[in-house]
Each structure stands twice: as structure tokens, then as C-alpha cells.
Nucleic acid binder design. Structure first.
Lengths: 156, 156
DNA sequence: TATTGTTATACTCTATAACTATA
DNA sequence: TATAGTTATAGAGTATAACAATA
């Protein structure tokens, strides 16, 4: 127990964290369900987002950006090649490496995900009074800054 | 993104969703890392939380509460028995079934997780002005209500 | 000698289907 | 016949280590 905090404070903090964790779980669940409809898995989708950010890249760079092992990227790219979202192209100057590149299908899939995310943000926020949205964003920024100060880093 | 330019509505919504998704990813990552230190995995921990809520239960009830298959619960309980967090006890009236029950180690593990969560909520929120915490909670509640209206349900 | 990506192997999580023991 | 849980099997994601081809 922490004697120098008023009794009700802890309950307020716990209630706030409960909401954050509940929201985290619900958003995760929803995203994963939506992905399956496009023939994608969460990890393969994460690779597509990374690839869009990096442009055509050797697997080593993708592994570094995603913070996973080279072996994991081999498996994810195998799956994405099999389902037609990316290709392994020759690297122009290093014959050990590939350039993982989007197919038209892969580009269309990421475009669609992006559009869905924009629509989703409208459904979540468009009806909110501006002051409530401002309050939410201020609170989230505060939490993100605290997490950063605690040493947590974005996985992206 | 350029913070000096007046943002349109869509950009405001997208920025808010970006923060939510970033926070989701960071909280997930942090929780999973913390678990490994206790010899637990995310799914096994989820089972322990469920078991605390239900009390000693047959695996079928655990599967229903966790929304996973009976086979998955068999595997999770196997792992938790092997690492000493739970036991399979005889069911008093149904010899087909077990009552999955906490060991002292399992109870201590969940107690510890609960204490860590309380400490974490203090680190996140104790420094915040009350008005900011209120604004955050109001925004989160609004989002949760919207998700509920969209048909999303808590995984718990 | 160092690096890129693969094969070999292993563990977790998830699932469906077939099966055993019991209800 | 129906139910509780297991075995059998499979696929995704993750990892380390050994190895190939190339730098």
C-alpha cells in the first residue's frame, strides 16, 4: 500500500488503466479479424506496412525495421509470395540478397487497409465534440510521453 | 506531418487514431515482455486471469470464457501444470472432467501481476492534472461506446 | 572474414477431426 | 446419444544455430 496517496486515487488510476487495456484488446481483436478477410495475417500485414515505408528492400532491412529475426522474415515473405502480395526481385548489386517488392495485388491491399483505417477513424471521432477529442488526444500524448520516459519505444 | 499547418478534420481523426494504435502496440509489447520474466506467456497469463475470475473450473468453462477451442486449453493447461502454476484436480461429480486449480505459485503469480498493474497505473496517471485524466477517461469512454455500438465486444 | 538468406530444429498458439472415457 | 478432454495433425509465428553463396 502507498500511504501518501489518498485512498480514492488508486481506484481512479486503475479505472483509467482498465479502459486503456480494454480498448487495446478490442482494437487488436478487431484489426486481426478484419485482416483475415483479405487473406492476410497480422504479421504479414505488418511486413506490408513496413515495406510501404521502406520501399523495395532486402530481407535484412525488413528484419531490422520489424525487430524480428532473419528467419522470421524468410517465413513471412514465403507466405506473402505464395499468396501473391510481394515478389523477390534480384538485388542490382548484391547477388546474395533479394529486393522484396510489392505486386499490384500487394499495393492494392495496403491501399485498401489505409482507406479502411481512415474510415474507421471517422466512425470513432467524427461525432465527438471538438473539446472531447482534444481532451482525449492530450491524455494520450501525456501517456505516450510517460511511456517514452519509462524507456518504452515504439515497435515501428 | 506538418504541425504548423491547420489540419483538416480527417487529419485530426487520423492523428487521434495513430495515437491510439501506437499506444495499443506499446502496451502490448510491454506486457508481453514483462510476462516472460515470470516464466509466463501471454496466453497462459490470460488463462490465469480467467481462472481467478471463474474459480476452479473444468477446461470446457475456461475455453468458453477465453473464446478458444478445447484443444487450445489442453495445451495451455499442460504448460501451466508443467511450470507449476495450476493443477488438474478431480471433479467431484464428473469423472470425465478436471477442476483446474491454482497452486500457491500460481496464486502468487497473479497477485504479483495485479500489484505490477497497480504500480503501472500510478506511474502513468499520478502526475497528471485531474482535468487531463478526466478528459482522457471521457474520450476513452466515448470510443468504447462507439466500438460497442459498432458491434465490437470485449474479449473478456 | 563478414554478411545474406536458407535449412534444420524447436517451442507457443491456434484450429478441426477422430477418439476414449464417462454421463 | 451427448459431453469432457485427449491424440493426431496442421499451419502461423517466433527463435537459435549451422550452413551456403557471395561480398
Amino acid at each position: 500500500m502507498n500511504a501518501h496517496l489518498p485512498a480514492g486515487e488508486d481506484a481512479r488510476f486503475a479505472a483509467a488503466l482498465d479502459r486503456l487495456l480494454l480498448l487495446t484488446a478490442m482494437l487488436n481483436d478487431d484489426m486481426h479479424r478484419g485482416l483475415a478477410a483479405d487473406g492476410l495475417t497480422p504479421s504479414r500485414t505488418s511486413l506490408l506496412w513496413t515495406l510501404r515505408r521502406l520501399g523495395p528492400s532486402p530481407q535484412k532491412d525488413i528484419a531490422a525495421a520489424m525487430k524480428v529475426s532473419a528467419r522470421t522474415v524468410t517465413g513471412l515473405v514465403d507466405g506473402l509470395v505464395a499468396t501473391g502480395f510481394v515478389t523477390r526481385e534480384e538485388h542490382p548489386s548484391d547477388r546474395r540478397a533479394f529486393l522484396v517488392s510489392f505486386t499490384a495485388l500487394g499495393t492494392a491491399a495496403v491501399d485498401k487497409l489505409e482507406a479502411e483505417q481512415r474510415d474507421f477513424s471517422r466512425r470513432l471521432f467524427a461525432h465527438m465534440p471538438a473539446s472531447r477529442l482534444d481532451g482525449l488526444v492530450a491524455g494520450l500524448d501525456d501517456v505516450l510521453a510517460t511511456l517514452y520516459a519509462l524507456g518504452l519505444r515504439s515497435p515501428f
